[in-house]
Amino acid sequence: MRGFFTSYKGVNQRFEQSIEWNRINGYYEIDLPQSTYSIYAMGDSHIGGVENLDKIFKNARNENAAAVVMVGDLTTGHKEDYDLFSDHLPLKDSLMYFAMVGNHDLYFDGWKSFYSIFGSSTYYFVVNTSDSRDLHICLDTGDATLGEKQFDWFKKLLETKRKSYRHCFVFTHNNLFRLRPTSSTNPIVEEIHILLDLFLKHNVSIVVTGHDHKRNTAILGKTTHIIMDALQDINDRASYLKISINGINVDYSFEEL
């Protein structure tokens, strides 16, 4: 019941811890010898079951994905779920992965477990190909808001860095739009307004989210908004997202499990 009124550690506090983690550990750069690559994305695994989780990591490794991005609700927030999740993570030498929190990950004071396994939930990573560089931004919307501090960081990041990169992708847990009748909560509309403005001004290619558990896509301006299916084992239509980058072309597909 507590969650109806407040969170254990709010997004501003998590953001500060994330930025501190980034300061110590830096931002990842993935160097690729070729010009094409793929990013696998998934969300809402809600561990419990790990069958689909193992499959996405296996497929990503077999198909030489540049990275797997996990957009939150990876667990139910319990420490034992985090421990189970951690046991199934690949070695970063074999497959790079990035994660951010969803609301379920934060239940039962789950941020402590998330932070101990993944560290930051607000950061960016860069993919350097043989002919260009792409910017991938990961945001924490576990509380259904970026919060004032993360908002400021995101705006400054786009203003200062975006122009140096070819494509820009944004990954976060909360879907922005209500594209079907659903009880999942979106950010408050004043926040959506500012985000839409930023996405247009800074030519964000794709915004990848989860949270709603059922895939949906919408294009607004230059930005494709993708809501992914839940990866959790009990979902009959579980899938993950494969984003393929080939020069200036960006394509995506839902890969069913």
Binding site: F4, F5, G10, Y107, D143, A144, T145, S183, S184, I188
Partner: peptide, 15 residues
């Protein structure tokens, strides 16, 4: 008073 994420059961101050 606006609170984000109330029905996410993980609410945080919005404005």
């Amino acid at each position: 008073y606006k609170q984000a994420g109330m029905l996410n059961i993980n609410a945080y101050y919005f404005g």
